[in-house]
Design a protein around this nucleic acid. Structure first.
Lengths: 319, 319
DNA sequence: TTGTAGGCGTTATCAG
DNA sequence: CTGATAACGCCTACAA
């Protein structure tokens, strides 16, 4: 592998001059520049990027932590992040955690070791204090509803969204309302539960723990939900469903079992994915791709910002 | 940031000894080892991984090239790759190409610059000769049906699969058979088209170019397919569909438009995703996660291998 | 078992 | 405009 030193020899200049040409710095005479370029051409030279990283202390690499890359919610966030990364000449290092804290720590470790310049955590498993400890080593961006002067965040207000969705269902006459989520822990799940309990309290409705169903991630989980509901003495008449995939699964399953939607049960999905439009599922649109793009921009920015995104209820035929 | 030199000073030993402790090399006395470990503890030391990379010439990073990470086919491959990467202490750098050759070249460039140790290309856009040129710089693994002594590959035999699927439909009485794919170019598409033409020829069936529908990637593309078919004078009576997502989209769309499956049209999907099982769609199972795992292992292995995986027809209710 | 010294390939500083 | 030379932080012959 030829290096900058050899190039210098070939072109009859110093390594400094070669470096200047390589990085488009000014103050190089036309002749010398030409000589260097020729040497580069002739030798098929390739920069050793690791040397650059060691020298500059940066890697143009950004870590992305997410539990599952095959889940549409995260796939869409990732799409937005990747788009901006490309535009800004950054590459992404992927950490699929499956919600294991240990894998999240690996990502933080890489930040510490300077292998990545900053870190985007799409869904957090470890404690917030652990994140804060690592801010020393580079920017960390979170995708959750936390107002912090130290950490940049991009989020939607899950409390408000849930509240409004519940009100909407209440206005439509529903009194037994359940919901499905991906996991019980995590900021957004807590916010949703709080909104749910506040709602029940406001209208003096009873709390059924069975109305909250977790581990709903994929299409096929819709079947599970319906099976659970069929076991209940007083099944809910409406369901807020973690995402449109699961909502679609529920709809399909209801068709198979001749459960009429929305007569017997109403469904509201999240994300407003194409599948929701196609299947006429009422859904709450979350601008995931845009949020992903913003996450990236925050990751490369030196100042802290907390950005809330608004959502939109798409009324269709499942309520 | 404290470095190895400072540690040496703190522990009263040489940098070599520190390095030895850091990398678990033998020949360090218990006392010195202890002294070093204490210094590490006290100073909150972190290795600068870029210096290691420069020094060793390797990065424990593997590039993964795929067109879209939100497409279930690639998401599943990625899942398998990520699983093995984790086990083997490698990290992944993601390249979403959207089939743009320029982005694929960026990945090859990173290999050249030693920022990644090897490269997995899940779906290739650039010319094979370009790949071969880059083999000098590190292993490159392909996920396509190419037998090569120079490049490792993991694949299913799309020609044979298509052939068998077409025969199956023929036995069921179908004579007008169409198919949907993601893109018209690419090794697997060529193999499929070849199988398709050979099949038509074998049975003396006419070739309708409109029976081949491309750009079918996601669930919502099912609607597009049905719309195209409805425009045809003699629509196909059976369809081989690129993946189960699209197949599901077609099934849903047919339901909406009261087109009976399999009476009016038969459907075979690919991948045997959960959605296919749930919706009772006949599908050809491709072991994508296992293939992903194999791709990773090939990427870190020093010898070349070409591994073909077999598939399985899951007969259900759409044929 | 330990340490010295040179090398990895760049970038940055500073004097000419 | 140009070029020595010193970082950057770690690894590893080789010598002791």
């Amino acid at each position: 592998m030829t290096n900058i030193k050899e190039l210098a020899k070939m072109a009859g200049v110093s390594v400094t001059t070669v470096s200047r040409v390589l990085n488009n710095h000014p103050y190089v005479s036309i002749e010398k520049r030409k000589a260097v370029l020729e040497a580069i051409e002739k030798s098929n030279y390739q920069k050793n990027i690791n040397a650059v990283h060691l020298s500059t202390g940066r890697t143009q690499l950004i870590g992305v932590v997410l539990p599952f890359s095959d889940h549409p919610y995260f796939a869409l966030l990732l799409k937005g992040i990747a788009k901006k990364a490309l535009e800004n000449n950054y590459k992404l290092v992927l950490f699929q955690t499956e919600y294991l804290e240990s894998r999240e720590l690996e990502a933080l470790q890489m930040l510490k070791q300077k292998q990545i310049d900053s870190l985007i955590i799409c869904s957090r498993a470890c404690d917030l204090s652990v994140i804060e400890e690592h801010l020393l080593f580079g920017p960390i961006v979170l995708c959750e509803n936390i107002k912090s002067e130290k950490i940049s965040t991009t989020f939607v207000n899950h409390y408000k969204i849930f509240q409004e969705a519940l009100e909407y269902l209440y206005q439509k006459g529903h009194r037994e309302i359940g919901y499905c989520i991906g996991r019980l822990t995590g900021t957004s799940s807590y916010k949703r539960e709080r909104a749910y309990r506040d709602f029940l309290e406001k209208y003096g409705l009873p709390y059924h723990s069975e109305y909250i169903m977790d581990k709903c991630l994929y299409f096929e989980d819709g079947e599970k939900v319906i099976n659970q509901i069929k076991q209940m003495d007083t099944p809910p008449t409406a369901l807020l469903v973690t995402n449109d995939q699961v909502a679609a699964g529920i709809v399909i399953c209801c068709q198979k079992q001749h459960i009429s939607i929305p007569d017997e049960i109403s469904i509201i999905g999240f994300d407003n994915e194409p599948i929701a439009k196609m299947m006429n599922i009422t859904s709450i649109e979350i601008p995931l791709v845009e949020m992903g793009m913003n996450l990236f921009l925050q990751a490369v920015s030196s100042d802290i910002s907390n950005k809330e995104w608004s959502v939109k209820l798409m009324e269709r035929e499942t309520v």
